[in-house]
Design a protein around this nucleic acid. Structure first.
Lengths: 115, 115
DNA sequence: TAATCAATTCGATAGTTGCCGAAATGTCGA
DNA sequence: TCGACATTTCGGCAACTATCGAATTGATTA
């Protein structure tokens, strides 16, 4: 967008927005739980949106717990939940993890290899 | 290094090692606390290793709490603590944040733009 | 040696959160 | 409509942790 804008921000992925502190903290908290991370991995690995039942078998947790974790991932902004009849399908929200990764790398002293 | 090794692992930054699950979780937990993240930011922003007293004033927390957070950052592997007489100096451990960022991006569906 | 300052350890408290069983909600098929 | 199934909500328990004040350790300086 923004035609004729010469200062062309060299957005490599042209997608990841800057995160607020609160968003960043929420994302990190959501990722900091092993079960939740594993769930996210499952979702990522499956090429299509993942069904909850599938996820539950993989994680070996009670339905209530899975529901809790899904909500955490959703409210933190990491995943999208699409409802289709009886089922819910989970998919990774694009760009968010990239934004977080960028936010982490901006802290790293090695990000400026010149010195 | 590793002479005559032809299979040359194409480590882009030639630094970030792969993280184990446990390491990754520890790092995420350490980063998920706002005060701790702020502390890390302070350390990163200061070009030289940061003194504890400096950090304490910036964060407005009790010495005991700061000590606790420093230990968390240290045991998770995010920072180095160098002792010099009466003072402790904190510095970011290079490569770790990069490794974590890479680990996050590997989950992202956008990381494989070909498909 | 004594006083001082930096930082840690200890003990306690308050708040958070992962987890589950049981009950409720909602959707589909018979 | 009824029963089966997917998912959520509710209540509660147990474990963890951020926080602090007070006491302690350790190094510097008077």
């Amino acid at each position: 967008m923004s035609p004729t804008q010469g200062t062309a921000t060299p957005d490599r992925s042209a997608r990841a927005a800057r995160l607020t502190r609160a968003q960043r903290t929420a994302l990190l908290k959501a990722l900091a739980d092993p079960k939740r991370f594993e769930l996210l991995e499952r979702i990522a690995k499956s090429s299509c949106p993942l069904g909850c039942t599938n996820a539950r078998e993989a994680l070996a947790i009670a339905p209530a717990t899975l529901s809790h974790h899904i909500k955490e991932l959703q409210t933190s902004g990491l995943i999208d939940v699409r409802r289709e009849g009886k089922f819910h399908f989970l998919s990774i929200k694009p760009g968010v993890l990239d934004a977080l990764a960028a936010s982490l790398q901006s802290l790293s002293p090695t990000s400026c290899p010149g010195r």
